[in-house]
Design a protein around this nucleic acid. Sequence first.
DNA 1: CAGTAATCGAGACGGTACGTCGTGTCTTATA
DNA 2: TATAAGACACGACGTACCGTCTCGATTACTG
Lengths: 218, 218, 218, 218
Amino acid sequence: MSGSGDDGQRATDGRTAAGPGLRTRGRPRSAEADTAILTATRTLLAERGWADLTIAEVAARAGVAKTTLYRRWPGKADLVVDAMAELFSHLEVVDRGSMFQDALATVGQYVTLLQLPETQAALLALASEADRDASLRAKVRGQVIDPQRRLVYEAWERACARGEVEGETDVDLIFDMICGTLVHRILIKGEPVDEAYLTRFVSVLLAGVAQLRMSGGI
Amino acid sequence: MSGSGDDGQRATDGRTAAGPGLRTRGRPRSAEADTAILTATRTLLAERGWADLTIAEVAARAGVAKTTLYRRWPGKADLVVDAMAELFSHLEVVDRGSMFQDALATVGQYVTLLQLPETQAALLALASEADRDASLRAKVRGQVIDPQRRLVYEAWERACARGEVEGETDVDLIFDMICGTLVHRILIKGEPVDEAYLTRFVSVLLAGVAQLRMSGGI
Amino acid sequence: MSGSGDDGQRATDGRTAAGPGLRTRGRPRSAEADTAILTATRTLLAERGWADLTIAEVAARAGVAKTTLYRRWPGKADLVVDAMAELFSHLEVVDRGSMFQDALATVGQYVTLLQLPETQAALLALASEADRDASLRAKVRGQVIDPQRRLVYEAWERACARGEVEGETDVDLIFDMICGTLVHRILIKGEPVDEAYLTRFVSVLLAGVAQLRMSGGI
Amino acid sequence: MSGSGDDGQRATDGRTAAGPGLRTRGRPRSAEADTAILTATRTLLAERGWADLTIAEVAARAGVAKTTLYRRWPGKADLVVDAMAELFSHLEVVDRGSMFQDALATVGQYVTLLQLPETQAALLALASEADRDASLRAKVRGQVIDPQRRLVYEAWERACARGEVEGETDVDLIFDMICGTLVHRILIKGEPVDEAYLTRFVSVLLAGVAQLRMSGGI
DNA sequence: CAGTAATCGAGACGGTACGTCGTGTCTTATA
DNA sequence: TATAAGACACGACGTACCGTCTCGATTACTG
C-alpha cells in the first residue's frame, strides 16, 4: 500500500499492536472499498479522461457511497494521486548485462507506463493542479515522481559494479532529462515513442553523461 | 496576430483591403476587446491559476460581456492558447559567438518563460485538456509548441555556418530533450533552474549530440 | 399577482414606464416560469407532502432549472408561501342575507381550503418553519394569514349595515377563534368538519360575540 | 412514564419484580439514558428549533450513542412526541371557586406551556409531520392532544356540581376552540397572550357556550 | 440619409458536478 | 444482550460555472 492517508486510522491500520486498546474503536474502514475505489478511478480515467472524471461516478462504479470516498480523500486530485501511485510502484531496473541495455529496458518500462490511457489522462492534470496546491504537489512528488529517482541511481550503481563507469553522477539532472523528454514526447506532443526514437534518445543521453564525466565536471 | 478564430470575420479583420465584397456588414468587432481579453486572461491566470480561472471573470476584468468572449473563442482552453501564444511568439535565437553560448542564452529565455506564473498555470493544463481533444491539441502544438522547433534548427544552422558542426541533426529529439527537461524541472517538479543546473544541462546535451554524430548515427 | 419578490425587478416588472431606460437590462425573467413553478409546487405538495417536497422535483415538474428556482426564492418555505398565497387570495365574504348565514358560508369556504391536501401539507409546516425565521413569519402572515382578517371585518360591517349589530368588535380575537378552531380540528387533529359541527361552531361563536357586546366589554 | 416503546422490554423494565423468568437476558437497558435523552431533546428543541434538531446531536448531548437512541425510538418525531408528552402531562384543572375563574386559570396554564420555546419548536412541527403519517398522528393525539380533553370535561363537571350549569356539553368543540385559538395566536401568528386577551377570550367562549345551551342545542 | 445587419452590454436560462449534511443501518470491541 | 464509536449507503441540499438565449441599444456600411 502506498500510505497516502492523512487521517490517523488509515496510516496506523493494524500496525501498532502495542496500542492501549484505544486504537480500534467503531466500525473499521472497509479495506475492499479502497481497492474498488482506486481500480474504478483508473478505469474511469482511461474511459473518460480527467475532466469528465466524476467523484460520483467513481463511487458508483466502485459500489460505494460518495461519502465514503470523501471520508478518505479530500478531492479528485488526491484520489488520482493514490490511483497512479499504485501504477508507478511497479517499475524496476532490469539487468540486461550492460549500462546501455539496462537503460534501454528501464526507460522502455517508463514509456509503456506513460502510454497507458489512465496515465495520459492523469499525470499532466495532476501536475497542473499541483501548481497552486503545495500539499498536492508534495503528494505527487512523494508518491509518483521522486520514488523513480532510485531507478537512475540503481542503474548507475550497477554500471559502476560492472566497471563501466565510476564515481558519482548528477542523478537529478539525468532523471529530469529522462522523464521530461518522454513526457514531452508522449503526453505533451501526443506522439508515440518507437524503438528507433528510444535508441537514439538513450544514445544521446548516455553519451552526454559519459562525456560530462570525462570533462571532470558534475 | 495568431489567427485562432474559427469564423471568417476575425481572420480578415482589417487586414486585406483588397476584397470589400460582402465581408464587412453590420457593426464590426471591437479590436480593443481582443487585446483586453487576452491581457485579462494572462493576468487572471497568474492570479488565480487554471482551475479558478473563470470565463465570467475574464470578461468582467476585460470590461466585456460574456457573449463577446464566446463569440470569439469556443471555450476556456482555446482562449488560453491564444493568450499563451502571444507570450511564446517572442523567443529568438541569440548570437553569442559559439554554439554553447547560443544554446545557453536561448534555453535561458525559455526558462524565463516557463517560470512566469501564467505559464505555470496554463501550459500543463492545456496539455492535459488536449489529451482528449484533438482539435485543441492541434492548436496547442501549432501555436505554442511547434513554432519553437525553429530555435533548435536555427541554432544548429548557425553552428554549421561557424564550422562547429556539420550535416543535419535530429531536431525533434533535441527539441523534446530541451523542452521536456525544463518542463519536468520547472512545471512538474516545481523546482527552479539556476545557472549551474542550466550549464550542466547544456553541457550534457551538446556533448551527447556531438558524440552521437561522431558515431555516425542520427 | 401576490408580489412576494424580494429583488427589485420582479416587484416593478412592467410597472414604471417612467423609468430612465435603465430599468430593463438583460434578458427579462420568464413570466411563465413563475406560473409553472407555483403550480408544480402545489401539485407536489398534494402528492408528496411537505417533507418529501423537493426543490429539484418542483423544478423538474415545472420544466425549469433548479437555478431558476433559487434565483427567485431563497428556499422551499418561501416558495410554498407564494404558492399558498395564491390559494388564499380567492376568499370572499358571501352575502346570504343574515350575519349567521354569511358567517356560515364564509367559514365554509375557509374549511374547504383547509381540507385541500396542499393546504394540509403546507400550512402547519410553514408556521413551524417560521418559528425560527422572522422574515419567513412576516411573509406567511403578510401573504397568507393577515389578509383574511378583512373577511371578519367585512362581515361585521355588513351586519352593522343590516342593523343586526352595532359598534365595533374585537376582530383579532374573532379571527383567531375562527382560524384556530378550524386549524385545530382539521390540520392538527386531522378530523373532518361536517355541516353539524360547522353550525354549532358558528352558533357558539356568534352567541359569544353578541353576549360580549351586550355586556359592554371589548 | 409515557410508554412509547415498541419492544416489550422497555414496558416492564424494572417495574414488575414478579417474573424474573426469561425477560432479563443480557445487559439491561440503562434507565438513565431515557431521562438524559428526553431532557436533551427538550433542551435542543429550545436552542435550535425543530429543523436544526439532529438525532446525532441529541445523542451527543445526552452522552449516549446514536445506536442507543435508535433502539428506543424510530425517529426524530417519535422522540419529540415523548419529550413533549412529559411536558403536557402536568396540566390540571385549578379550583378557583367559579367556572369563569377555573377556566381562566386552566387556560392560563395552557398558554404558559405553549409559550415555552420547546413547545413552539415542536408542536406544529409534529402536527405537520403527522399529516402523512397515521401512526405518528395517533401518537401525537394519544399522548399530547387528546389527554387534555379531560380538562374541559372536569371543569364542566365541577361547574355542574356547583350548579352553575347543567347537563352535558360539546366537549370536542369547546376543546377545539380553546386549543385552536391559542395555537393560532401563539404558535401560528407568534403573538403573545396577555391578561386582557385571555379574559376577553374566556368571556366570549363561556358566553357562547351558555347561550348555546339556553337555545336548547348541543 | 434612412435601412439593414451585425455587434455589444446585461443578465436570465437549462444543465451538471460539486462538497456537505442528516438519516437510519451496519459492524466492531467492550462491558 | 446492550453499549460507545464510528463507518456505511442513500439522497437532498444550495452553490458555482458552463455555454446558450433573449433583450434593448449601438455602430457601421449600404442602397
